[in-house]
Design a binder for these strands. Structure first.
Lengths: 153, 153
DNA sequence: CTTTGTATTTAGAATAATTCCAACTATTGA
DNA sequence: TCAATAGTTGGAATTATTCTAAATACAAAG
């Protein structure tokens, strides 16, 4: 046994190791950025935030780290529109609400009656994860729907 | 009343008109392409298919038409990965199965016990549409999961 | 059936998002 | 310490989408 991981990063290190990946300073940073502000940032936003304390990190590394984190099940990709993919470190069962007006994304927790696993799949399909997203108007935009695609991306 | 629409395109024309949009040859074509082969094509694929019978159609028009169709509720966007958005003319309640291995997308019909509308939303959120997507292995790829992101987009 | 105003299409340029590449660095195991 | 491999980096390349200005098509009004 090794026994030399920093306690705080143990889960990260273990998860990565389980996939044959190393825990690096950059991966810790990227994961940290996601945990710190859970507003479903894009790769670009993660990049900007990570740069504050790690000025030399590159975009290629951001994508590499995000892929590693997604690959080992610590982070999920969130694709809601034609814009950039967003990243979410909340791996608990929840869904995303996407405001068609302002483009904001909110986490919505599941409640009792909803059971995604009750969806019937034809023989042979092996589900790994269910994603539920809800499109509509968020409380702030409630009264003002809209035509085109003009929410800031 | 007008009464001069081609019967086959009546629903298209009406839907568009309801949003102040015209029914054009290109929009009919794009919608036709989507109805003809329901394999969730990307804008690029729609473009290539439409070009067969309409060689001068441009990519900008494809996007314009797709947006018009989405805007009037005849087509929905499907975002499942970092790749291009796909388009689906099936407006009935159904979900999408995305194969993490080969990248294929399948329509999955809802069955009785699943009711997206049972998802509880906090006050103020006005849902317009629920999207459910399932990620996993399709019957053809069932035995062979995979590491990286190498499914042809 | 001409005019006029507006919607739509078009090609191509511009931008945004993501991936690829080759060189450099760090880490691990022998 | 050395070799092998994984990871990082900057920048180029590619892909996806949006924007723009000019040309075209249409619909309503005269």
């Amino acid at each position: 046994m090794k026994g030399s991981e920093k306690p705080t990063d143990a889960p990260l290190t273990e998860r990565l190791a389980a996939k044959g990946l190393r825990s690096t300073t950059q991966r810790e940073k990227v994961y940290g950025v996601l945990l710190e502000k859970r507003d479903h940032p894009t790769a670009e936003q993660v990049f900007l935030r990570a740069k504050h304390s790690m000025p030399d990190i590159s975009m290629a590394t951001i994508y590499n780290c995000l892929d590693a984190l997604v690959g080992c099940g610590l982070v999920r990709e969130v694709n809601l529109d034609r814009g950039a993919t967003r990243y979410c470190p909340n791996m608990g069962e929840h869904s995303h609400f996407y405001c068609d007006t302002c483009g904001a994304v909110y986490d919505i927790d599941y409640v009792a009656r909803f059971r995604a696993s009750e969806l019937h799949l034809p023989k042979g399909f092996q589900p790994v994860r269910y994603d539920v997203s809800i499109h509509g108007q968020c409380p702030e935009c409630g009264g003002t729907p809209r035509q085109g695609r003009s929410n800031g991306h």
